[in-house]
């Protein structure tokens, strides 16, 4: 067993909205090379925890720390789809390319390397044929795959996924899981919130169960 190097550390972490605490006094490390699956009932705090990790929700108390020089711009994130996006006039390519905004400072255009990377990610999620299509005219599953392609583009060291296979047909989910596995082999750290427990246990190196907030290693 390799030595564990923490990538994100949570100390005495309490997360919540308003007066309500959803995650309380959690000590947890996401380590370099983890394929961590977070499971649990609806409302158990999985997504809240992921929002905490992604920096969208500030801790009410305690700390979340990025270690190993990890920068936000090296994180890929797949959020659950928002209402605004459903009827947004944008082409698939525009959306996937927007993944690079955290990385590049002020250039108003995208270089060739970025465009090629975007094409690779679209190929991985089988969305390259939709490149010029309008996002709002895609099916739910296609939209999900486009947002995933965007997350892959942004992810250099860490990939945060909030229910990535929701709305996908079995074949697409299978492709998805294979893509995650390949990425993980190449050294990507993956944190995934999922309802799909069987698939989670198949692939994950660690499982975090929010129903018990007990954490099992493997």
């Amino acid at each position: 067993m390799n030595e564990l190097i923490p990538l994100i550390t949570c100390r005495q972490l309490t997360l919540g909205y308003g007066n309500k605490d959803i995650v309380r006094d959690l000590d947890y490390d996401v380590n370099v090379g983890d394929y961590l699956c977070i499971i649990g009932r609806n409302g158990s705090g999985k997504t809240t925890f992921l929002r905490g990790l992604s920096g969208l929700l500030s801790p009410k108390s305690g700390d979340i720390e990025l270690c190993e020089g990890l920068k936000r711009s090296e994180i890929g994130y797949l959020p659950q789809m928002t209402l605004v996006q459903r009827d947004f006039p944008a082409s698939v390519e525009e959306i996937v390319l927007s993944a690079f905004q955290g990385k590049h400072r002020l250039l108003p255009f995208y270089g060739r390397a970025r465009r090629e990377r975007a094409m690779e990610c679209m190929a991985l999620t089988r969305t390259e044929s939709l490149r010029k299509s309008c996002f709002r005219e895609l099916s739910g599953g296609q939209k999900q795959r486009v947002l995933l392609a965007r997350a892959l583009c942004a992810a250099e060291r860490l990939l945060l996924l909030d229910e990535p296979v929701t709305g996908l047909d079995p074949e697409s989910s299978e492709t998805m899981y294979r893509a995650f596995k390949d990425l993980h082999k190449k050294g990507m750290t993956i944190v995934m919130v999922t309802h799909d427990v069987d698939a989670a246990l198949d692939n994950a190196t660690r499982v975090m169960n929010f129903d018990q907030i007990s954490v099992k290693g493997k």
């Binding site: 992604s54 920096g55 969208l56 920068k71 936000r72 711009s73 090296e74 994180i75 890929g76 994130y77 959020p79 928002t82 605004v84 996006q85 947004f88 944008a90 525009e94 959306i95 390319l97 927007s98 993944a99 905004q101 955290g102 990385k103 002020l106 108003p108 255009f109 995208y110 965007r150 997350a151 942004a154 945060l160």
Partner: peptide, 20 residues
Amino acid sequence: LFYNKIFSITFDENFARATG
């Protein structure tokens, strides 16, 4: 100058924030 940034924030502010 900020056209692409404005697009990414308009389309998905959370994603933009989470990715730096």
